[in-house]
Structure formats: C-alpha cells, structure tokens
Nucleic acid binder design. Structure first.
Lengths: 175, 175, 175, 175
DNA sequence: GATGAATGAGGTTTCATTCAT
DNA sequence: AATGAATGAAACCTCATTCAT
C-alpha cells in the first residue's frame, strides 16, 4: 500500500503542494481531518456555484417542461464534475464517505432537485418524492463519476448525457 | 484523520480477526495490497456464486421476457449486497476503485448482463449495447450500495427494488 | 505527556497573556530560557521585596531573640509564597532547578538568614553555620511549598507555621 | 530551551538508550506518559525495596527508641536516594509533580512512617500525627534531595544525616 | 510452517523562533 | 518598535513488514 494518490494525501505533501509550510497549514486547520473537510467543502461550494449557473435560468416558477429541467440538471451535473476531477476523486476516496461527502455535494444537489420536482408533482409518475430524489441524484452522480473514472470517452461524445436523459425522463414522466 | 472505524483495517487486526498470526498472513500474501485484493476477490466470488443462484434458472437462451430477467437481476443484486456488507464497504473504501474493483464485481456482473441482453437486442430501445450494460450495471450497483449505506429502510421494504425495475424497464424496453 | 496545565507555558501563550505580540517578546528576550529566567528573577524580586517588609523591622543588630526572628522569618516565607503561587509553581517546573532557581529565591533567602544567624552564633546549638543555613532555608521552603501544593489547609489554619517554629527552634536553640 | 537533560527525555532517546526500537517501546507503553509513569513506579519500587532492607530489622513491635528508629529511617532515606540519582532527578523534573510522584515515593514513605510513629504516640511531642508524618517525610526528602543536587559533599561526610537526626529528634521527642 | 516481538520509515502535530510588513 | 503569519526542526506515535525462535 505505497503508491498512487491515496495514502499520498499527507499533510506535509498538501502543505508543499500548496506552497506553504506545514506549520502554516496547522495555523488554519487544527488537524488533518478539518483540512480535508475544508477542502471538501470548498470543492462542493465550487461545484454548487457552477451548478447554479446552469440552473438559475430555469427559475423556480418557470413553466419549463420536466424534460427541459432534467436536461439542464444533467448538463449541470456533467459540468460540475469537470471542476477539479483529481481533487474530487481524492476526496471521494479519502474522506470517510458518508460522514463528510454526504453533507456536501449530495445533500445540496438533493435539495435543488427536490424543490424543482416538488412544483411539478402532478406530472410525475413516481409517487414518493423523497425516494425519487434519492434515485435521480444518485443515478446521475454515480454514472457521471463512474464514466469520469472508467469511461471518459462517454462524456466527451455526449453519449452519456443523452442516455441519462432517456433513462430518467422515461422513469419520471407520466405516459 | 480519526479512525471512523475503517482506518481500523490494519494488517495486524486482519490477522487477529482471522485467527492467524501476522507472520502467517505474510506467508500467503506478499503485502497488504495483495491481501486486500485477495479478500476483494474472494468476496466478489462469494457474491457471484450467490448471483448465479438467482440467475441460473433463467437459462441463457430461455424465452423469458426482459422484464422477468431484469427483475431477477435486480433481486440477485440486492441479495448479493447482503453477503457481507461491512466487508463490502471496507473494501470499497480501501481498495483503489478503478484498478481493482472493476476487475471484480463490476466486470463480472457486466459480463452476465451483456450476454443476457445480447440475445434480446431486438427488444431493446437503446442501441449501444456496451453503453447500456454500463448504465444498467452501474445504476443497480450504486443505488443498492447507496441505499445500504444511507437508506437501509428502502431495502427492507422492497421499495428500492420496485423503483429500480420501473427505472430500468422503462429505459430498456421498446414502447 | 498530556498537558496537565503546565506544558501550556508556551512562548506564544506567554506573549498573549502578557498582552504583547510574540515578536515584541523576542525583542526583549533572545530566547525562551532568558524569558523564563527574567520571569523567575522578577518573581524572586517580588518575593524578596515582600520579605523585606517582614524582616526590616527586626533590624540587623536588634536584640530580638532568635525565637522572634525565626517566627518572623517563617511568617515572611509563608507570605512570600502567596505572591503568585501559580507562577511560582510553573517556574519551579519549567526552570532547571539548580542552575537558575538557586540564584534566586534560595540564594537570597540564604543570605538574609546567614547574616541574621551570624550575629547570634553563641546562642546556636549547631556549629556549622553554613550547614545550618542550608537546612533552615530548605526546610522552610520545601514545607511551605509542599503544603501549598498538597495540603493547602495547613497554611490556612496556621498549623504549619506553628510546627515549623517548633521544629526549627528546638533545633537551633541551646537548651 | 534546548539543552541539558530535561527536554532531552524524548521517546526516541529513551528507546535508543534502552537499546530497543521506538516501535518496541510503544508495544509496551501506549504513550509517553505511561512510559514515564512506569519508569517512576519501577524506580519507586526499587527505592522501597532498599528501604525495607533498612527498616525491616526494626520490627513493628520492637522496643527500639524513637531515636534509633529515626536514625534508621534517615539512613534508609539517604541510601534510597543513591539508587539512581540521575533517573530520580529526571523523574522529579519531568513528571508533573503532584500527579505522579506523590503517589509513589512520597505516599509509600509516609505510610511506613505513620505506622512506625503510631505505635509510639505517647512519646511524641507533636500531637497531630498526620501533620507530623507530612513534616518528617518532607523534611527528610527535601534535604537529602537538595543536598544531592546542590551540596553532595554533605552526604559524603555524613554531616547531613547527623543534623537531620538532631533536627527531627529534637522536634519529635518529649523533653 | 507458524509465531509475534521487533523494527523503523514516515505520518501527524507542536512550538520556539524569524522576518516581512 | 511592534506585529503576527510563516517557518521547520523535531517531538510523539502508527503500522506494514521482517525474522529469530
């Protein structure tokens, strides 16, 4: 267990990479955990900031179709995963998952989704909004992240976005 | 980095838990990585053995409907994730994702899926079989694993299985 | 080595407590040792200033009995240990004993004692003045300091002073 | 604060001096504090073992005079302080005093003293046995330790022992 | 083979000290 | 002069790995 990127994330290396001394790092963060959390939080905020960029135009009371909304959300999710993929990966593989990451990109994205879907409840096939939000968020995120790691070409060609739209719209919309 | 229960996965503790000496462990595995890999492989095999149990009855050239097949696959995936959830989680957090895990549960399940779907290509809406397999496998796995960690009640009530079937069948089947 | 309250004695904390910047501290003291020494010296002077208050009335050539003198010295020693007990303790635990502290409260008190006793040599039972001074000073100091730390009630009730007087007068005076 | 013997007591140096690796040290002691405590305890036990050697002959119900007893106790205390003076000093200056050392040589010696004196209460001038024990123990210990550090010649010539006996017997015995 | 005490590189963290502002 | 952020040597401690028994 020596190598690549995982145990590589040491406080001394973070400090060096950041161009500060290890002492300075500890002036801002009381310990490694808090440093990791701060990085994760910052990264999540960056992602959300970008997401807003894609989602704002939709407006909350807009009369866009669910299809349009979905498409935009997927586009946002793809864009968001391009923010800092290396950091994203390290955070997802270093930070005890549920405890920290859940609070961050997951929860935030779920909130956005929930409020979008709540307004269009009558057009939705699934009845349990909470469950639906969980499924959508998780599916989008895992497919995009998985593609990023294992099938990057699917993102470049736009194929994944297309299929995600098909997958989720068929599920969400009443026939 | 406190422990959060998972940094507890040290070679000495693995040996003790396994009831052998640390020295014996190193007689079988040259280093921690290989030990982890072997554990992962064994676990993946356990999962596949159980999966076969669910999938064998379908037969390869059977004339079951895709819906039936999907339902059975989902059932298999849920069962399979109950094999040793704690170990499963530890492995997912310890083993560098793409490099090892892909070789294991992912790849195996993908193969099973591919051969099932290949025989029913004409009934499928999506055209790119490879992409479809990726999407199905990933979606099933991430939703079940995610529920296991964050929403275990969804598994107990069977809700998740139901929704997964809805999600994937609507996507897969021609209208 | 947890803190136990006394490893808390860091230069930065001293500066903060003193209301100056750490930079300013280092303008006056070249290093921690010299700072500690200065603190110890100041503290010792404070103690001596107070001691003089008790001892001056005795006068050097006064014709007070040794008993009176002893009593006053003990009173002075008790008062002196109330000056800043916390600082006193910290200094005793931080400053290498023999090298610094000897120069301070010990030596000064010994000088005072020596000159008092020298004038009454003929009334003293012990013959070696130097040794006597060592014993008296050390006994007074260690019993008062020890009581301060471990048996503060002995100081409040005045019991310790009484016993110290008995202990030392029986030793010093000819029968 | 760089130098001599105080901050010198690091875990790595202890390990090196003990001829073991730092890892081995931590196999036996969970942290530095416990190591220090164990050293202190061992040292205190060594001292007590030697003390018993001097005190056993007295017997508990013996009819030795208090003078004889005192003399023997002082002799024991002097011998005891020769056990490992360097270690003794480090322990006294490193270990948060009251918390650890008190439990050790102090308490043990106090117990021995108390039981000796309790049997001869009617011959004692002081009335408060507890206070007397505190005074005797502390006086013996501080004078011997102080001489060891600052006036070693007093120990070699036996002068200190003599004066201690005079000091304490005059105090203890009824006239 | 099996054992587990021993190893030590390297990780996290502290704190005396410096120096640009 | 005064400030306090920055520095980094060095402390404590962990854990994958070795090797004498």
């Amino acid at each position: 267990m020596t190598e690549s990127g995982y145990d590589y994330f040491t406080t001394n290396r973070v400090a060096e990479r950041a161009g500060v001394s290890i002492g300075s790092l500890y002036q801002y963060f009381p310990n490694k955990e808090s440093l990791l959390f701060a990085l994760a939080e910052h990264h999540a905020n960056e992602m959300m900031r970008l997401a807003q960029h894609y989602l704002d135009p939709l407006g909350e009371i807009s009369n866009r179709s669910i299809l349009e909304v979905l498409q935009q959300i997927i586009k946002a999710a793809v864009a968001v995963h391009a923010v800092n993929p290396k950091l994203h990966r390290v955070l997802h593989e270093q930070v005890p998952h549920s405890e920290v990451m859940r609070e961050l990109d997951q929860a935030k994205m779920e909130n956005v989704l929930r409020s979008f879907l709540a307004h269009r409840r009558d057009q939705l096939q699934p009845e349990n909004l909470d469950l639906t939000v969980f499924i959508i968020e998780r599916t989008i995120r895992s497919l995009i992240y998985g593609a990023l790691i294992d099938r990057p070409e699917l993102l470049k060609t736009g194929e994944l976005e297309q299929e995600l739209l098909a997958l989720l719209s068929n599920y969400l919309l009443k026939k």
